[in-house]
Design a protein around this nucleic acid. Structure first.
Lengths: 340, 340
DNA sequence: TTGAAAGCGCTAACAG
DNA sequence: CTGTTAGCGCTTTCAA
């Protein structure tokens, strides 16, 4: 007895197409897979039959026979996923999905439970996917790096530990971007510029601070006004308070991301100071907040959606055996609004 | 000749487990699928063999044989996906993914190209998934409704056209939420309350306006101060300007979403008015902006992540043949900050 | 309770 | 260029 699918319907099979077209199943398979060695007329006949029957190849069967799944996993660590709708992450996912929708690959989004890491590991290694994209919120977490030998993997962001030179990753030019906006602050005439840096155990935190510092030093300006936050608005606010409490006057601020800039904004306003009059503020990310704040935040645009798209692209090449650079850097762009 | 997988490795098969455990493949299959009729000892032996070999069942083979895929599609219309990192959508996706990660279903996220709708349709109907979740940014777009007869589908948001009483959907209590925050504005002593409504061709736009209106009428207040926006910050700013230009004074405002409230904020500030001193402002969504704005926006919390989780839950029940209500409403919650 | 056997729908040598 | 022939790894009757 043949079991029908859950909806009780039979789907047309390749065999039925073959029968209708009067050719062998192999030929139909060739047509479906765009094999070059099939006569145009036959292609035509087969395609007609396919259209008539409304035939759709069965992925499972295809995958079983070809030993390829045409599935790409997008791995998001649970802690990352729980972050309250992180816009950066969302854009990346969007970029991956959009790019992949143009290919024959299917996107399998999976949340990596941190309490049961083997579950994810097994899934990835169980032959269920052709490759994986791993994104972890800014963390440079390459804990899946060791799987890279067995499965093509592309990471978002450079690894935290630079010794890891085996994994493929796509990153943003954090340092250069930070340097550029700091230069812009300087060009606007500011001389005393503070920074609210990100966590120093996250690559973007480190790199953006480095960018600020190198711009300051290149212009022989004091680079001691540093406070650290954790990329959250609240931490930005606190860092801003500490900065003001130092009692050393300053007229410029570079926040390592827009959310911290948002926190700083509120403290600056509370203190009765104006932006950019008293303090010019620069951010990083160009997220949702940057555009809606008052005054609009001058910031560094991070191509998060393109970042996702590029990760997808790199992975597909990797899967298909093409040559790819281990490191792909995405350029940033200065977005001038009204805060500097 | 046998072709190996892309990485050139052989994965352990059920057959190998059977051999090692000294039982038949059928028995191993039963153990893997928790069949009740297997002797505990045998289960033990088989599980040991599975562990020893690090066996992971092959999804494709399983799906081919059982005619079930264990895959759920999350369909996002392209136009929705392109929205600049919509935080609402992101939370929903997150909720779906988190909920599904606890089940044996796998999440297949797919962008529905609007230029080639058949591609998505064929994919869904091609036996590639066991069910689908369709989210479209606020639109109540049930254009896949007709597929509902052939494939279990759950929609996010009620349909635009109420005649559609065949599809399953999960929605938020928009009207009640709007009514509640309007009541709160009234309770704060405001008498002249305007609203910036959402598009009247989107269910949430309609429902939130209705909620505002019913609260106003119940309190015998004038409900004529209405301007329409499109849920974007810019449209909120424009609507606010039109409201001010009317010359009719008002001391309260309900914006149908936080983004429009954000736009209104900037116009209010530009006009030299204070919040909540001159105008108290209420929003809807409790998105990222609401928490970071100055003053913090009092708004209606939308359980977007739980919404996603619930959609996943409903779909799984539907797939597994359990009874489910066609309509599931999620409650909202008033979040009090400093704008009222 | 367990095993044997027959596919699920497709791809991929190999022949012709 | 096309057809024949084996499977891919698993589930599922049916018999034992």
């Amino acid at each position: 007895m043949v079991t029908d699918n859950p909806r009780g319907e039979r789907m047309p099979t390749l065999e039925m197409v073959a029968a209708r077209a009067g050719v062998s199943r192999a030929t139909v398979s060739r047509v479906v897979n765009d094999s070059p060695k099939v006569t145009p007329e036959v292609v035509q006949i087969v395609n007609d039959a396919i259209a008539a029957l409304n035939y759709v190849p069965n992925r499972a069967a295809r995958s079983l026979a070809s030993r390829r799944t045409q599935v790409i996993a997008l791995v998001v660590p649970e802690s990352t996923a729980r972050l309250f709708a992180d816009p950066f992450l969302a854009s990346i996912v969007q970029g991956v999905a959009l790019r992949l929708s143009e290919t024959d690959y299917t996107l399998n989004m999976l949340i990596a439970s941190e309490s049961r890491p083997e579950k994810t590991r097994r899934y990835l290694m169980g032959g269920n996917v052709d490759g994986a994209i791993v994104v972890s919120h800014h963390r440079g977490d390459h804990s899946y790096a060791h799987l890279g030998q067995a499965l093509p993997i592309v990471f978002g962001g450079r690894p935290l530990n630079d010794l890891d030179d085996e994994s493929y990753f796509v990153d943003v030019e954090n340092e250069l971007g930070a340097q550029r906006i700091t230069d812009y602050l300087i060009a606007s005439g500011r001389k005393r510029i503070a920074t609210i840096a990100g966590p120093q155990d996250m690559p973007p935190g480190v790199d953006r601070l480095a960018g600020w510092r190198s711009a300051m030093r290149a212009n022989a300006l004091d680079d001691s006004l540093i406070e650290i936050g954790d990329f959250s608005p609240a931490s930005g606010a606190e860092a801003m308070r500490r900065l003001l409490d130092r009692g050393e006057p300053f007229d410029g601020l570079f926040a390592a991301n827009d959310q911290m800039a948002a926190g700083a904004y509120s403290v600056i306003h509370e203190a009765g100071l104006t932006i950019p009059g008293d303090i010019a503020v620069g951010g990083f990310d160009d997220d949702y907040y940057a555009a809606t704040s008052t005054p609009g935040l001058t910031t560094v645009h991070q191509p998060s959606s393109r970042l996702g798209g590029t990760m997808a692209e790199v992975l597909v090449k990797l899967i298909e055996g093409e040559e790819v650079e281990r490191v792909t850097m995405m350029p940033t762009e200065l977005v001038v609004r009204n805060s500097i």
